[in-house]
């Protein structure tokens, strides 16, 4: 019990540290591809600390609530995802919980964005919803494929099953590829950074955030990076102990970064078309194969 309580407190902290490390690393790696040196890895953390100390403008109660909601959703979600075997709140049906909890973050953003009443935000929200609509389909298919294959709705079970034998990616290559293909969309990086597209809708949903709100969104983003990648590692790469798990996450993240670095942004209609085309078909085929076998 004590271990559980401690892990409930520690795990989000670890997730936060890893998330910020990834944020910093992404800037460094991308800078190198840009032929720059880039800022120090601690830069995102410094930014957040600075932002917290800044004056912040609120647009009303719902505005505040939305930000907190999306952050809280992410923190809870972290507790459901096994990290090196530690999953404090893991239950038998946690994959289903994850699917629902993942919707909390965009919901919170939409809530606060609606209060801000900036046309850019509303376009951003509509884009976010549309994009979510796009990537949720292949996401669900690949989750279903995993669930069918291992005949369980518990993520811990999935991980355990993989650790005893081969990783799921070898049994279910198609859903794994499909998941990886939509990973940039889930992370909101190029070519799918349509939601925040600064050059089109002035950072969209983030346009009204300042000071503490921006800091909270950044923290939420750090959690979000952790969750999406950790989920992939858990589902297809067999989890692992603390170290191997982190290394696997790093590899997946770097692959995502490379995609981020070499592609321009897509238009929303192209993005949805893409999501519903290749990843969805792959994941569906994978699901069918998993079902048949």
């Amino acid at each position: 019990m004590i271990i559980k309580v401690i892990s409930i407190i520690v795990l989000p902290l670890i997730a936060l540290i890893i998330g910020f490390f990834f944020l910093g690393l992404s800037r460094k790696v991308i800078a190198r591809i840009h032929r720059r040196y880039g800022p120090p890895i601690s830069q995102p953390l410094i930014d957040v600390i600075k932002l917290i100390n800044q004056e912040s403008i609120s647009h009303g109660k719902l505005f505040d609530m939305g930000v907190i909601l999306s952050l809280a959703g992410s923190v809870i979600l972290v507790l459901f995802i096994p990290f090196g075997g530690i999953a404090p709140l893991a239950t038998s049906g946690d994959l289903l919980v994850i699917i629902y909890l993942m919707l909390l973050a965009p919901l919170g953003v939409a809530l606060s964005g609606g209060e801000a009443a900036n046309p850019n935000v509303s376009i951003g929200i509509s884009r976010k919803m549309m994009l979510a609509l796009g990537y949720e389909v292949p996401f669900l298919f690949s989750l279903l494929a995993v669930m069918t294959w291992y005949k369980t709705t518990s993520l811990v079970e999935v991980v355990k099953a993989q650790q005893s034998f081969l990783w799921a990616i070898f049994y279910l290559p198609l859903p794994a590829v499909a998941y990886f293909m939509i990973l940039p969309a889930m992370l909101g990086i190029r070519p799918f950074d349509i939601v925040s597209a600064p050059q089109e809708i002035a950072s969209g949903t983030a346009v009204e955030y300042g000071g503490r709100y921006l800091a909270l969104t950044t923290i939420q983003h750090a959690f979000h990076i952790f969750i999406d990648i950790a989920l992939f590692v858990n589902l297809f790469l067999g989890g692992g102990n603390l170290l191997t798990f982190f290394v696997k996450m790093l590899v997946v993240f770097l692959l995502g970064l490379f995609i981020n670095a070499v592609f321009p942004r897509l238009r929303i209609d192209q993005a949805i078309k893409y999501c519903w085309k290749w990843p969805a078909i792959l994941a569906l085929v994978g699901l069918i194969i998993a079902r048949i076998i």
């Binding site: 840009h34 032929r35 950074d193 597209a197 600064p198 050059q199 592609f263 942004r265």
Partner: peptide, 15 residues
């Protein structure tokens, strides 16, 4: 490139 969020090429061009 910058307009398409394509920072890599943008930075090269600037260099």
């Amino acid at each position: 490139a910058n307009m398409l969020g394509f920072d890599t090429v943008a930075q090269w061009a600037m260099y």
